[in-house]
C-alpha cells in the first residue's frame, strides 16, 4: 500500500500539489488522471523520490520514503516513462538486465528471467541483441516494461507509458498491459490523461485538478456519482465513453 499523509509540493510560489492524503491499494491498478499540470506526475515523482515533498510523509508498504532509503526503495519499484527512457548505448538485453548485473545476481538466472519477461511482454527473444535505435516505439515500451519488471518489484509506476504511440500499437499494448497487470497482481500506478485507458486498465481512478484530488473511485462512481461539475465535464469530454 502506498500512503500519502498531508503531502504537498511547492516550487517557490507555484503549488504543484496541495496538501494531500491518498491511499493506493496493494495489488490493484490505480490510474491518476487529469489535464496536464494537474499534479498527477508530481505524485509519481514523489513516490520514487525524484522530488522531495515540501510537507508530509509518504510510505510504501510501511517503509517511509526518505533520501537515506531511496536507493532500496527504487530497486523495489519499476518505472516506465512515456518514451521508454531506454539508454541508447545499451542493447535491449543490457537495458533490461542493467540492475541485475549491477547487483551481481547470477548470470544464468538472468537469461531465464529475460526469456520469461519476453514471453510476458510479447517481445521477441531475438530482439534482445538490438539497440533502442533499431526497435519500434511499441517494442521500446515493451523493453522498458521488461526493465521495470526485471527485479520483480512490488510496485510498478507508469507515466503516460502509451502517450507517444500511434492508436493501433497503443490499443495492442493496452490489451497486453491489462493481461500483465492481472497476471502479476502488483500494485500499479498509471498516469494518463485518457479516461478510456484509465477505465479499461484501472481498478480505481483518481481524478486530479490544479494540484488537488477531486474524486477517487471506479469509473462507474465517477460517471454516476460525480463529486462536482468538473468530474462530469471531464468524463463527457471523452465522447466515446458515453456509450460504455
Amino acid at each position: 500500500m502506498i500512503l500519502f499523509r498531508d503531502v504537498s509540493k511547492k516550487y517557490d510560489s507555484l503549488t504543484a500539489l496541495a496538501p494531500t492524503d491518498l491511499e493506493i491499494e496493494s495489488g490493484k491498478t490505480t490510474a491518476l488522471i487529469g489535464s496536464s499540470g494537474c499534479g498527477k506526475s508530481t505524485v509519481l515523482r514523489l513516490i520514487v523520490g525524484l522530488i522531495e515533498p515540501t510537507t508530509g510523509t509518504i510510505e510504501i508498504d510501511g517503509h517511509s520514503v526518505t533520501p537515506a532509503a531511496i536507493l532500496d526503495i527504487r530497486r523495489r519499484i519499476g518505472y516506465v516513462i512515456q518514451d521508454g527512457g531506454l539508454f541508447p548505448h545499451l542493447t535491449a538485453e543490457e537495458n533490461a538486465g542493467l540492475m541485475w548485473r549491477y547487483l551481481k545476481r547470477p548470470r544464468t538466472e538472468m537469461r531465464l528471467r529475460l526469456e520469461e519477461l519476453c514471453d510476458l511482454t510479447r517481445f521477441p527473444v531475438g530482439g534482445l541483441a538490438r539497440y533502442p535505435a533499431e526497435l519500434s516505439g511499441g517494442q521500446r515500451q515493451r523493453v522498458s516494461l521488461m526493465r521495470a519488471l526485471m527485479l520483480d518489484p512490488q510496485v510498478l509506476l507508469l507515466d503516460e507509458p502509451l502517450g507517444a504511440l500511434d492508436p493501433l500499437v497503443r490499443a495492442g499494448l493496452q490489451t497486453d498491459l491489462k493481461t500483465i497487470f492481472q497476471q502479476l497482481g502488483k500494485t500499479v500506478v498509471l498516469v494518463t490523461h485518457d479516461m478510456a485507458e484509465a477505465g479499461y486498465l484501472a481498478d480505481a481512478i483518481v481524478l486530479m485538478r490544479e494540484g488537488r484530488i477531486i474524486q477517487k473511485g471506479t469509473l462507474g462512481d465517477l460517471r454516476d456519482r460525480p463529486a462536482d461539475a468538473f468530474v462530469s465535464e471531464f468524463i463527457s469530454a471523452q465522447r466515446s465513453l458515453v456509450a460504455i
Binding site: 525524484l50 519499484i77 527512457g85 539508454f87 542493467l98
Partner: peptide, 20 residues
C-alpha cells in the same frame, strides 16, 4: 528523461556516471 530513468533504477550516483 534519461537522467531520471537512470536515477529511478536505483543506480548509485557514481554508477550512473560511469555506466550511463
Amino acid at each position: 528523461s534519461l537522467r531520471e530513468s537512470a536515477e529511478v533504477l536505483g543506480l548509485e550516483p557514481r554508477a550512473r556516471l560511469i555506466k550511463i
